[in-house]
Nucleic acid binder design. Sequence first.
RNA 1: GGCCAGUUGGUGAAACGGUUAACACAUCGCCCUCUCAAGGCGACAUUCACGGGUUCGAAUCCCGUACUGGUCACCA
Length: 480
Amino acid sequence: MAKIRTRFAPSPTGYMHIGNLRTALYAYLIAKKDDGDFILRVEDTDQGRLVEGAVDIIYETLKQCDLNHDEGPDVGGDYGPYVQSERMKEGIYSKYAHKLVELGKAHYCFCKEEDLEKQREQQGDSFYFVDPCKLLSKEEIEKKLADKEPYTIRLNVEPEGETSFDDEVYGRITVENKTLDEMVLLKSDGFPTYNFANVIDDHLMEISDVVRGNEYLSSTPKYNLIYQAFGWDIPRYIHCPPVMKDEHQKLSKRNGDASFQDLVAKGYLPEAILNYIALLGWAPSEDREIYSLSELAKAFNVKRIGTTGAIFDIEKLKWMNGVYLRNMDMDKYYELVKPYIYETVDKKYDYKLIANAIHDRVNILSEIKDMVSFFNQIEDYDIDIYNNKKAKTDPELAKVILPEVLNTLSSIEDWNNDNIFMALASKAQELGYKNITMMYPMQVALSGRSVAPGGATAIGEILGKDETLKRISNAIDRLN
RNA sequence: GGCCAGUUGGUGAAACGGUUAACACAUCGCCCUCUCAAGGCGACAUUCACGGGUUCGAAUCCCGUACUGGUCACCA
């Protein structure tokens, strides 16, 4: 079997959408599963829609995701992406388009855009373009060319018969040729259309598996007509179902939906995002959901790509991101979390202890800020929060408990979590309280919150003896 | 409107003619517990868009209907 070669062929018209990224991921996985090549090709044949910096975003995103391409023009020792506007300078597309005219498989079209629009308006829904230029005589064509009349090159389509192909995901698709229009191959500005450049480059780059969104499903027969006109082999097609925002709409930047960059900025890990979106439209054969990129490549199977749009569920991504955070090597976790902690917390506090306290609680990095802000400073709170059903505490009882806590703690020499806990636990026993009855008021006194990470004693350890005693005395003052 | 495709719980989904219709997220309980989490356990689709058919047997095969999406550009 020939080497598997896939490509990701985005057009640089904005940000990297989750749907795009998933297509890139699938293309990458399909190649890597069989030790194939993954190629990045930027399709910028529409000069009007170019967006500054878009290529960089695509490039950086793939890099962050570790979706590295295997070849491309040399860029300072690194592989850059193939760029169609660069390739166009070599005249590749124009050459092939004209060759098709020579072969009698395409023709010059001198129609003006306004004419087409007028025709379209008049015919409305039933518009079907029949190109008058197809009837032009050789002499007329020669003359128009000599007069430098602007032209496009259109594919010839015979309206008889039907064209079909087998998609790896959707199965056999058949359409009648009369529903296919004679699409433009080369635009009047000399640029190829996306469709045409796509076919030419896929062939030239020996792409074996074309992976793309299912919006191309209905135009694929037209692509095949081009392959056939040249007598080229048709690649395998893998059309992917869309990633949806809700039942009706796809995810898109236009709607202000989160892009990959947005998610990263919110504290989602690239690995988790990749893992999650892999599961949107594809299901592993084993009962498992957490996969590293290389594990995905091993487990991936085109046959298990689904055909229906999958709704992007941020809640599940959140959960999965939390799993990644919890399973991560602790040193890596500490480094990752450190800046988020020190964003609000004074450096005199040990970030590792804080990181431990929030370890099982963080799902996305951006949650950390609020979670730990009380270490630095207690926000204003209502003494009502001393009311706790489980601890059976209320402000009145706290007034009694807190001085006991203060007393117990002040005699601790070696200040650490274990010692604090043991001292308090034995005091609780002595006084006939459950542990929680001592701990909960302490937690409120130290954090000003009914819910705080780590537990009262861990918070105490982090704050240090002085600050702990100070906060408890303050709390007592507040209650009186 | 023509053409192409899709339709399993709130969400992602499994199942490839015979299962109590997996599993995961979310939700709700319970347990654990120094709060919250995390973790453990359990509940959660009499039903697979609907209507016919084929079959001893259908979520799975066939036909029709409905709904949803895609596509019909010198956009990609």
